[in-house]
Design a protein around this nucleic acid. Structure first.
Length: 557
RNA sequence: GUCCCUGUAGCUCAGCCGGACAGAGCAACUGCCUUCUAAGCAGUGGGUCGAGAGUUCGAAUCUCUCCAGGGACGCCA
């Protein structure tokens, strides 16, 4: 555990012990102690840590919060890290850390290097993050990109938190939609070769299907034209599917998103896991026949309505296959926790999925579904369409190529998953001060530039004395550097990666201020060395943050 | 009609497991480059936290009722 997290725990312990001691000695009445809270106060004048514990204790005891704070504080002896423990109205206990302890933390960051910020929260527990999982019936759009970036960043942070993470893309290569896609492709193929055929009902009308057909004609010619229809559809379909998946994979790689496993829906049927899952539900008495179909009786588990699993025609629904898929995740592959990132259009699917996991005898807490809300795309004032079937759509690839991977990632990650977002192409593109992406990267480039100069002048700062760092901007910067492990913990716990982008901006800001106020390479040799250590540590932390975000760390701009 | 998400500065958004005067970026205005990157820094102005009620010593944060925007309610996925 990193020093800062240990310290935090230690302060909480000390508060708890002091409160218990106060109770034993009769200074405070013996009531059940509320949870000891410890937070970073909004304003630095309130110290490094603050606890509102006395305020909470006041309710149960009926004693003035400030009196409680004083009693507890009196019973605490500050450790070597702590400069002062003071009470503040209306009943806070504020902790200020020693400058010497703060500066010494630089010496823990430097040797840690890329591993600084890693924590052992997960203890190698197996966790799956499943995301994107878009039907391979068309290209990705911007909304999918959001989920992709969100999922990959979350996986980065969970990995840094010592979870054993597997990133997975679920390929819906079975069922209705894929059939329609196959038949759409077949029709376009025929049409491109001169046949007058009609597109299937609800077929995929996007130009990409025609492009795909042309590509296949260029590679394979008209050989599929004279085969029996069912055979063509399976052969041509498989070819089209493979190409579609390859395209999706390429788009995602352009976004810096990769997967460990590409899981095939149809394999659930081939390997009998679908049958196993269904019979488990059957044995549990959760299935019933009515209106010619087989239903999962969700209402018995408190849901609004029941859901069909096997249609009247004998084919399984999407829901049924998803049941088998989750059986596979938890029972066959034994993931301790599973995180699914779904688009907003799947939100109605969450409660019944939870219910069915429960019915399979799996604790529903092990399944977490994050809903990624919709994205609307703007170019200045103008709305840009992204929907699959409209004519003037803009694909994810076009957006990435226009805006750039780093800017895309940063923008998407700057908002919580559950708020709908406006993505302004113009703003995202503008490479100027009004774009926080470059603001953060510029700080990194600036640091790199300083370190380059130090190298040119052959300044060896390995023996720099960090205790010389006593100026306010230096201490402010150190305090910010030390927040990274806590931040990683927060993101891994709340599953909200947007905090990272705010931290990156804060860190860049305090560095830029430091840069202005504290000349790093100066005639003062000892101070130069000390500051170079701080600068190097800042580079480590900033680079780590950018890497967690999946962004590049430019050495110059 | 039922359920989910959202409503905070002119704009885009943080903050929401209750706590110390409500924050950031952009936009507006004012200063700062002979010294390590001005894609930077320092400062000013700007808010009925959608509305109303309730719980509490204390509410942007919790509860309820409304209002507004988006989404979901299929033997589609």
């Amino acid at each position: 555990m990193s020093g800062i997290l240990k310290l935090r725990q230690k302060l909480i312990e000390q508060l708890t012990i002091a409160a218990a001691k106060a109770q034993q000695t009769g200074k405070l009445p013996t009531v059940a102690l509320p949870e000891v809270s410890l937070e970073h106060p909004q304003h630095s004048k309130h110290g490094d840590y603050a606890s509102s514990f006395p305020l909470k204790l006041a309710r149960a005891t009926g004693i003035k919060p400030l009196t409680i704070a004083a009693e507890i504080t009196n019973l605490m002896t500050p450790g070597p890290e702590v400069e002062s423990i003071v009470t503040a109205p209306p009943g806070f206990i504020n902790f200020t850390l020693k400058n010497s302890w703060l500066t010494s933390q630089i010496e823990t960051i430097l040797p840690a290097g890329e591993t600084y910020g890693n924590i052992d929260l997960g203890q190698a527990r197996r966790m799956q993050v499943e995301f994107v999982s878009v039907n391979p019936t068309g290209p990705l759009h911007v909304g999918h990109g959001r989920g992709a970036i969100f999922g990959s960043t979350l996986a980065n942070v969970l990995t840094a938190s010592a979870y054993n993470v597997e990133k997975e893309y679920y390929i819906n290569d079975a069922g209705n939609q894929i059939d329609v896609f196959y038949r759409s492709l077949y029709t376009r193929y025929q049409q491109c070769l001169g046949a007058k055929t009609e597109m299937p009902v609800n077929g995929y009308l996007g130009d990409y299907v025609t492009d795909l057909a042309k590509e296949i004609i260029a590679e394979k010619g008209d050989r599929y034209l004279n085969l029996p229809e069912t055979e063509v559809i399976s052969q041509l379909g498989q070819l089209g599917l493979d190409k579609m998946i390859a395209q999706i994979k390429a788009d995602l790689e352009l976004l810096g998103v990769t997967f460990d496993v590409w899981f095939s829906e149809s394999s659930l049927h081939r390997k009998g896991q679908f049958q196993t899952a269904m019979s488990l539900l059957h044995q549990g008495g959760y299935l019933a026949e009515k209106e010619g179909a087989t239903w999962f009786m969700s209402t018995a588990l408190g849901e609004d309505k029941d859901n069909v699993v096997i249609r009247g025609n004998g084919s399984p629904t999407y829901f049924a296959t998803d049941i088998a898929y989750h059986y596979n995740k938890f029972v066959e592959r034994k993931f301790e926790r599973v995180i699914n990132i779904w688009g907003a259009d799947h939100q109605g699917h969450v409660p019944r999925m939870k219910a069915v996991v429960n019915a399979l005898g799996i604790s529903p807490e092990r399944l977490k579904v994050i809903i990624s809300q919709m994205v609307t795309l703007h170019r200045g004032e103008q709305l840009v369409r992204i929907s699959k079937r409209s004519g003037d759509l803009i694909t994810l690839r076009e957006v990435i190529e226009e805006v750039g991977t780093d800017a895309c990632r940063f923008f998407f990650l700057s908002r919580t998953a559950d708020s709908q977002m406006d993505f302004d192409l113009e703003l995202a593109k503008k490479e100027s001060a009004d774009n926080p992406v470059y603001y953060v990267q510029y700080a990194h480039a600036r640091i790199a530039s300083i370190l380059r100069l130090a190298e040119e002048r052959r300044i060896d700062f390995g023996n720099g004395d960090v205790s010389l760092l006593t100026h306010e901007p230096e201490l402010v910067l150190i305090r910010k550097l030390m927040l990274l492990p806590e931040l990683v913990e927060t993101v891994a716990t709340t599953l909200e990666p947007h905090h990272l982008t705010y931290y990156a901006q804060d860190l860049a800001t305090v560095f830029h201020s430091f840069y202005r106020d504290c000349r790093v390479i100066s005639p003062n040799k000892t101070l130069t060395k000390a500051r170079l250590k701080l600068v190097k540590a800042t580079k480590i932390v900033l680079a780590k943050t950018l890497r967690l975000l999946g962004m590049t760390t430019p050495e110059s701009m």
